[in-house]
Nucleic acid binder design. Structure first.
Length: 782
DNA sequence: TGTCCTACCCTTTTT
DNA sequence: GGGTAGGACA
């Protein structure tokens, strides 16, 4: 047909060229998922099956959306900018901006990120005099987001006790506050858009008619609301539904904790009566031993749609396993191996160190730093999340919407203007009394406080006036200079970085205008912005008609609103010094979607990986196993796994047994670098170099070794029968004990000393428990 | 108003 | 152990 389809394997070809009907693509790790998704879109367009405007493709991250657009425009000579390719939140935002009246929102609504949401909740709790010990803002945030992700409004939440009823009331109060201030949180973007489609027949039908093909990436990560939204958009249950092309991998579902519902895959299969379930099982990434390990491990999960990866790459090297006496030794060993790899010509950027939780990075970072090996840690603060950037953005929010109390509160006294807590209290009282925004309540505050506040509102008004005819970048520059932010940071010891960031914001604004096509012509065409408070939902149909054409969108949003939206929806890169040849460090979660020649999976211990919080229930363990599966499948050529007998955690030394997942890996694919290797044909490290003699590692005769590898179960999992004895307790990890009440069990972890000493014991009949050794009556049975 | 100190938290995270 | 949020104090 065309060279679009060249070089696709049979499975990929089948997926790409499916007829217009619901399809589920089970795309294994490294099987060319993105390629299939983008080629499918290109193929549909090229064959005239649908116009670019008839396609909606949705992803979870901006990165994935961008990747899709880039690849697509390299395949077809089309402008992908106007296409509906984006994240769930991005696309919902787009619809809400187009139909702001029908959605009951002000045109310039601001988007709260999680931080903003939390401070809005704290503000709410304070204003209502709620006991924040009993109702912590964090819990309320979780409660609200959880409800919204299930599609539930306060009235829909079932509260069966007073405690929960209070939460529901606070949820309702929070929604009112948001509505009054013209702000929308992340979950609200989705829920509001869902309701818009659900309750507005004209708009729903318009989009159902328009989108003939709906493509979904990472389907296993969708939550309940996202799936409902997709069903509505795709016209599920109507005469003429869109063809939904869902791509996902149930084995890589690792986001249950934030609402992802793997069950959506099965539901989709049944509800849409999917006749085409295509499995992409050919892996183009990893060598055989690595894939065998992944397949073997994941086969221990019970509920799977079922899939087995294969490769033509050959067995390659076995997976190397190392046991360290401590986390420090583990780190030192990693340094040695990395040095070897670099000496053999490996690029640092092709080496990744993965860990289950962020806290683990510290020890390894320290070792890398001391060794002078360049490294890069993923995660942490992103550009638009920095305090100084949020301050500057708050000023800009106020230019668009003075009723945004969150923005007002953030900068009214930053930099300091002599408006103290007392003055703000008065202001808040006035706002409550006159039921108005903080900015409007300024007029009612008497005395010195009143005039200081008035000076602030005048500053905002003057800024709004002065920047009216300015470009976006000029506006940003004006704001950071005239707000006093720059001056403030000049007087601070560590202010230089912050000033540079603020200047970077000007650059970012410039780049944004170019990238998004907000040229001068577009600026001239901007229609007057409606700054009136939110209109009631379901306004007359005129507006809906007027903006049904999404191509009209760029002129609906001013560059400033667009930029602020961009800042909320796309918090920016969190990878410092990108581009440098540095070893990559990240959590396993953060590694999803990436691949490296050499991968270290560290901290493979019971309690860490699987994490202790997930060990209790079977679903939790299955998710941890999928997480391990993701970790393993990141490696192309060489995979290392390591664990340590002792580790500093939360300021205490803890002793862990090695992860149960070792018992689920194929022996033939493992090469033990430390004593348990005996009997598996592994070459002991000692024979490769003289590392045994180094001070960071105990001499072989110091390492007690039983000579047998434990067979299944968690008991004695470290392979060292009398490995580590906690001073004074008389107990050790791996020891079998008897308790009068709980019966027989095995110690899986020890921590603390003296009277604080406690043990985690996995009881045969009663499950895992933490017991204080000074209290519990335990008898060793050996 | 800014700084210092203490209490408290601690899995994973995108939007 | 280490980061941070919020309160006490100069």
């Amino acid at each position: 047909m065309s060279d679009l389809l060249a070089n696709l394997n049979a499975e990929q070809l089948a997926a790409v060229t499916l007829p217009d009907e619901p399809a589920l693509i089970l795309a294994g790790a490294g099987s060319g998922k993105t390629r299939v998704l983008t080629t499918r879109i290109a193929w549909l367009i090229q064959n005239g099956r649908v116009s670019p405007a008839g396609i909606l493709a949705v992803t979870f991250t901006n990165k994935a959306a961008k990747e899709m657009q880039t690849r697509l425009s390299s395949m077809l000579p089309i402008n992908t900018r106007g296409m509906w390719i984006g994240t769930f939140h991005g696309l919902c935002n787009r619809m809400l901006r187009a139909h702001f009246r029908d959605a009951g929102l002000p045109q310039t609504f601001a988007i709260l990120d999680s931080q903003d949401q939390l401070s809005a909740l704290k503000r709410l709790l304070k204003s209502l005099n709620v006991d924040d010990e009993k109702y912590p803002a964090k819990n309320l945030q979780y409660f609200i987001n959880n409800a919204k992700e299930q599609g539930l409004r306060p009235a829909d939440v079932e509260a069966n006790d007073d405690f929960n009823k209070r939460f529901v009331d606070l949820y309702a109060a929070y929604d009112l506050q948001c509505q009054r201030e013209g702000v929308v949180d992340f979950a609200e973007l989705l829920l509001r858009c869902y309701e818009l489609l659900r309750y507005n027949d004209a708009i729903r039908q318009h989009y159902q008619h328009r989108f003939r093909h709906v493509l979904v990436d990472e389907f296993q990560d969708t939550n309940v609301l996202q799936y409902q939204w997709l069903k509505l958009l795709a016209g599920y249950g109507t005469q003429n539904p869109a063809a939904v092309f869902a791509v996902g991998d149930d084995d890589q579902s690792i986001y249950a904790f934030r609402g992802a519902n793997v069950g959506n895959m099965r539901d989709f299969e049944h509800e849409f009566r999917v006749r085409r379930l295509i499995k992409l099982e050919q892996n183009y990434r990893s060598h055989g031993h690595i894939l065998d390990s992944a397949n073997h491990l994941i086969s221990h999960n019970a509920r799977r749609l079922g899939k087995n990866l294969r490769t033509d790459a050959g067995h390659g090297e076995p997976v190397r396993v190392f046991q360290g006496g401590s986390d420090g030794q583990e780190a030192a060993w990693i340094i040695e191996e990395i040095r070897d790899q670099i000496a053999q010509g490996a690029s640092r950027a092709e080496i990744a160190i993965l860990y289950r939780s962020n806290a683990q990075s510290r020890v390894i970072e320290h070792a890398l730093f001391s060794a002078g090996i360049a490294y890069r840690v993923y995660g942490g603060l992103r550009f638009f999340e920095r305090a100084e950037i949020k301050h500057a953005l708050a000023y800009m929010q106020l230019l668009e919407n003075p009723r945004n109390d969150a923005a007002f509160g953030r900068v009214v006294n930053f930099p300091a203007r002599g408006i103290g807590a007392r003055s703000l209290e008065v202001l808040q009282d006035m706002a409550r009394q006159y039921d108005c925004a903080l900015a409007e309540a300024v007029a009612y505050v008497p005395g010195a406080a009143g005039s200081k506040l008035a000076a602030f509102t005048r500053l905002i008004e003057k800024t709004r006036e002065d920047t009216r005819r300015m470009t976006l970048a000029e506006t940003v520059e004006y704001v950071i200079n005239h707000s006093g932010l720059i001056t403030h940071y000049q007087g601070e010891k560590e202010g230089q970085d912050r000033i540079e960031n603020l200047q970077e914001l000007v650059t970012a604004a410039q780049a944004f205008v170019v990238e998004e096509g907000y040229g001068l012509e577009a600026l001239a065409a901007v229609i007057p912005v409606d700054r009136s408070p939110a209109a009631p939902a379901l306004a007359d149909g005129d507006q809906a008609q007027q903006v049904l054409d999404p191509e009209a969108l760029p002129v609906v949003m001013t560059p400033l609103v667009a930029f602020l939206t961009h800042a909320s929806l796309e918090a920016g890169d969190n990878q410092a010094q990108a581009g440098q040849d540095a070893v990559q460090m990240m959590t396993v979660h953060a590694a999803k979607g990436l691949e490296f020649d050499v991968v270290f999976i560290t901290g493979m211990e019971e309690g860490l990986f699987p994490h202790e919080n997930s060990m209790m229930d079977p679903d939790g363990v299955e998710e941890e196993r999928r997480l391990m599966y993701v970790a393993i499948t990141r490696a192309r050529k060489r995979l290392y796994m390591s664990f340590a007998q002792s580790r500093m955690l939360h300021g205490q030394t803890r002793y862990h047994v090695r992860s149960r997942f070792f018992e689920e890996l194929p022996e033939a694919s493992l090469k033990w670098l430390t004593p348990p290797a005996q009997g598996y044909g592994g070459v002991r490290r000692q024979e490769r170099d003289s590392a045994w003699g180094r001070d960071w590692f105990r001499k072989p005769e110091d390492v007690p070794y039983t000579g047998t590898r434990p067979t299944g179960g968690m008991d004695n999992g470290n392979g060292y029968a009398d490995a580590k004895r906690e001073a004074g307790t008389g107990f050790r990890v791996g020891q079998s004990v008897f308790h009068n009440k709980f019966g027989e069990g095995v110690i899986t972890a020890l921590e603390g000393e003296g009277t604080d000493a406690r043990a985690n014991i996995n009881f045969k009949r009663n499950g895992a428990k933490w017991l204080a050794l000074s209290v519990a009556k335990l008898d060793a049975i050996d």
